[in-house]
């Protein structure tokens, strides 16, 4: 059953990710992105990381992609002036993709992963599912990861100020012609 679910979710994630890349319309791409994010969240559930799964759906699917959708709608750029990537660029990209896939494949079949106990894929459940317990997150964030947690606060503050700076209109905000 779990195997079956995994294949469904993995296919869902990867398939819609591919559609993000392939779809011509940015709105469609954003929709597929949501699906892909939900797929990732489901994989988290399979890995018993329930808290992260919820977070993934809330933050990514709920906030980030919706933000994307807003912007896509706001810009309302009809893809009339479609620019197809140059021939060289496409070839290079495909080569890069093939190389990446090969790399990914070689990592996955890497003999180093095949260590005693791992040659047989360990079934979920032999180790404690530490990620399932939300209080674990709180405990770690406020003990071991206290400092990064605080710094992350500043990171968010800087991002917030940055967004305001870049997008706010000012009284003296006259268009200064750029040099071209």
């Amino acid at each position: 059953m779990v195997d079956f679910l995994f294949y469904i979710f993995a296919t869902l994630t990867l398939g819609s990710a591919a559609m993000v890349v392939l779809s011509r319309n940015p709105v469609n791409a954003a929709m597929f992105l949501i699906v892909s994010m939900v797929g990732v969240a489901s994989l988290f559930v399979l890995l018993s990381a329930f808290f992260l799964a919820v977070l993934q759906v809330l933050v990514y699917a709920g906030a980030v992609v919706v933000l994307f959708l807003f912007v896509v709608m706001l810009l309302d750029e009809e893809d009339k002036r479609r620019v197809s990537p140059g021939k060289l660029n496409s070839v290079a990209s495909v080569v890069a993709l093939v190389l990446l896939l090969l790399g990914a494949f070689s990592i996955v079949i890497s003999p180093d992963l095949v260590v005693p106990g791992m040659a047989e894929p360990r079934t979920l459940g032999t180790t404690e599912a530490v990620g399932a317990n939300p209080s674990e997150y709180g405990y770690h964030l406020f003990t071991t990861y206290m400092l990064p947690f605080q710094v992350a606060g500043f990171l968010l503050l800087v991002a917030m100020i940055g967004v305001i700076l870049v997008s706010r209109k000012y009284r003296d905000d006259s268009e200064v012609p750029a040099r071209s």
């Binding site: 995994f6 896939l101 990914a104 992963l113």
Partner: peptide
């Protein structure tokens, strides 16, 4: 179940690619 870490890793690597 037969799904192991390799399968998750493969998914991850593919998504990355």
């Amino acid at each position: 179940m037969n799904i192991g870490i390799m399968d998750f890793l493969a998914t991850s690597a593919l998504l990355f690619a």
